[in-house]
Structures are given as structure tokens and as C-alpha cells.
Design a protein around this nucleic acid. Structure first.
Lengths: 172, 172
DNA sequence: CTCCAACTATATCGTTTCGATACATCAGTA
DNA sequence: TACTGATGTATCGAAACGATATAGTTGGAG
């Protein structure tokens, strides 16, 4: 997951650790900790996916290797048989530009279907919960409602992205 | 985090493991894995915060002890000096009903301030990112925008909750 | 009435990720 | 010069994850 994200960022250009962390953080959905970052870099180095070069002072720039590019491509184009985690999807989306347009739409469509399923069960659970409420659980209900609304917003957002992608695809 | 959540659910009534997992999952923001759940139950048992009683077949019902209630109260009323994680706040919110009304508002207000700060930096980052875009990163920008919108929605939602809480408070 | 598929339920294993902390370098500034 | 704050690499112990094993229970189809 983090390994994949790092490879994705390094596809663009070499970066050092701290910069990778910042770049990931700027996407907004994941504040990676140092305790995740450096072990991940070690893993990738050991697999030969990246290589480090001392730059200045203590700084090390990491660049992706041919091997690393191959790994990244495999990870990107293999979407898992089980439902992806929220973060898993978001990371995938961050690098969706590396996939051909039709594959992009496939990935987003699939996510859309999964979210719709979730939404349906969430609705049922909410109805059930509302009828059994002891007023003590006001905040629990509020949490469920908000989570549903977030999912709805996510779906709408995805629809927008898919529409845009189709627009670009038909324009070419 | 999970320990706290489990104690919170057990404050209500005894439950077995699987049920705890379901109840947590139904809140919508956290699908707890078995690999988290059972170790957490062991931890709590060892601390004397909960105790298990065999029910039927393999089922075990867990109930909270006096000690456990004390731990829960401490965790609930101590909010951390550093910024809480998203999930941390959501779990806290789930059990906010156990706090007096004025403390509830404090907790939510604080969260609101933190989100506002995040939002401000996110806005700056987005502006910067938009000007440097290579079109390759279309999806990265989309991700940032969506994350900002989610934060805005979260703030609005919090405002609603605070308003409702004030309403209840003044009605009593 | 039995078999079997699906669901409920507990548990563990190896790995990833987290949060806290340490520590070093460098820039600005008081 | 000395301090403060931002940048940068690193590690430690603990928490959480995802996959998998296994077993009991239940409801429906043959």
C-alpha cells in the first residue's frame, strides 16, 4: 500500500524520504508516519525497486529502478479480487493517470458499485437503529447518518470523475 | 483506541466478540478486523477491565467490570494534547453521550478548530498544486479537491451537532 | 430427513502501520 | 553567539490489518 504509493511518486521524479511523506500528506487522506515511511523505503530498496543516492548532508534521494517500474505497473493494473479499502482505492486513484482511459473507467465503475452496495446496507442498518434508539445513542445515530452522507458524496464525486474521463476519451 | 471503543459498547450491555465487531462496523467508519478485535479483548481481560463468561457452545459474553468503567471514564474525559486522528475523534463522538452537555460542546468545538486549520493549509496546497499541474496529475488534484470538500462537509456537520446540543442544553 | 451451503463465532499468524521519540543539520534572528 | 523552528533520517514497541483455519448452527433443496 505505502510501497505502491511511494513507487507511484517516484515514477515522476526522484525524491527524498521527507518529501515523499509531504507529497503523500498533501493528497489529504493520509498522514504517513515516519515509522511507516522508512521501513517501507528499506523494503523497496531490498527488493531492488528503488535505489538511494546521497545528496548533501544527511539527505538521500531515492529513484525508481527498471525493476521498480515493473512492480509499479503490476500493482497498478492488478485490482484485487476482494473489496479494496478506502485508502487503497484513493492511492490507486492518485496514480490512475498511468492507466489507459478505458481501464480508468473500469476501476472507478467498480468502486462505484462497491460504494452503492455499502450504501444500501448502511441505509437498512440506519432504519433499524433509529427504531431502537434510546436517545443515549443520539451521537451514534448521527455518526451513521454522516457516514452515509459521505458515501453518497463519494459516489457523486466518482460520477463526476467518470463523466470527465469519458469526455476526455471521446474528445480524442 | 479499539480498547476504548469496546469498553464504550460494553457500557451499555454485555456482548460477545463478533457482536462487538458488527456494532463497530455499523457505525460506518471502521471495519475492525479479527486480528485487531481478539487481541484487544485479551488486553482488556488482562487489565481486568472486562470479564468473559461462557454462554453457549463457543460463544463468550464479555461484560465490563468496575475497573473497566473507571478506565472508560478516564479515557473519555481526557482528550489528548495533540491533534486526534479522524478515527480517534469519531470513536470519541460515538460515546459522547456519556459526557455532560457542556463537555460535549467543548470536544466538538475543538475538533472544529482543528479541521478549520487543516482546511486552510489544504486550500493553500491546492492553489499551489493547480498552478504546477502537468495534466498527468489530474487525479491527484481531484483527490485534493475532494478531500477538501469532505473536510468542509465535516465542519458543517459538526456545526449542526453543536447547534443541536446547545438546543437540548437550553431546553433543560 | 439428510446433506450442504451460508452464516455465526473464536482464534492466530506474519506483516504493515502507527505514534512517540531521538537526534542531526541548517536558516534566520535576537 | 545562542536560540528557535523547520527540515531531515532513523528506530522502538505497540496497535491494527488481512488472510486463513476451524468449528458450531441454521435453513432450505433434493
Amino acid at each position: 500500500m505505502l510501497d505502491f504509493a511511494i513507487l507511484g511518486l517516484l515514477m515522476e521524479r526522484p525524491r527524498h524520504g521527507y518529501e515523499l511523506r509531504r507529497a503523500l500528506g498533501e493528497l489529504g487522506f493520509w498522514k504517513v508516519s515516519f515509522g511507516s515511511l522508512y521501513p517501507s523505503l528499506r523494503r523497496l530498496e531490498k527488493r531492488g525497486a528503488i535505489k538511494a543516492t546521497k545528496v548533501s548532508g544527511r539527505r538521500k534521494a531515492y529513484e525508481i529502478t527498471r525493476e521498480g517500474i515493473a512492480i509499479f505497473d503490476t500493482l497498478l493494473s492488478t485490482n484485487p479480487e476482494a473489496t479494496e479499502t478506502d485508502r487503497g482505492f484513493q492511492v490507486r486513484l492518485a496514480f490512475l493517470g498511468h492507466l489507459p482511459s478505458d481501464r480508468r473507467i473500469q476501476v472507478m465503475d467498480r468502486r462505484r458499485r462497491e460504494l452503492s452496495t455499502q450504501l444500501k446496507t448502511a441505509r437498512e442498518i440506519l432504519i433499524e437503529a433509529r427504531s431502537a434508539t434510546k436517545n443515549e445513542d443520539r451521537y451514534r445515530i448521527a455518526l451513521m447518518e454522516h457516514s452515509m452522507q459521505s458515501t453518497e458524496a463519494d459516489i457523486a464525486w466518482l460520477d463526476g470523475l467518470v463523466a470527465a474521463e469519458r469526455g476526455v476519451a471521446s474528445a480524442t
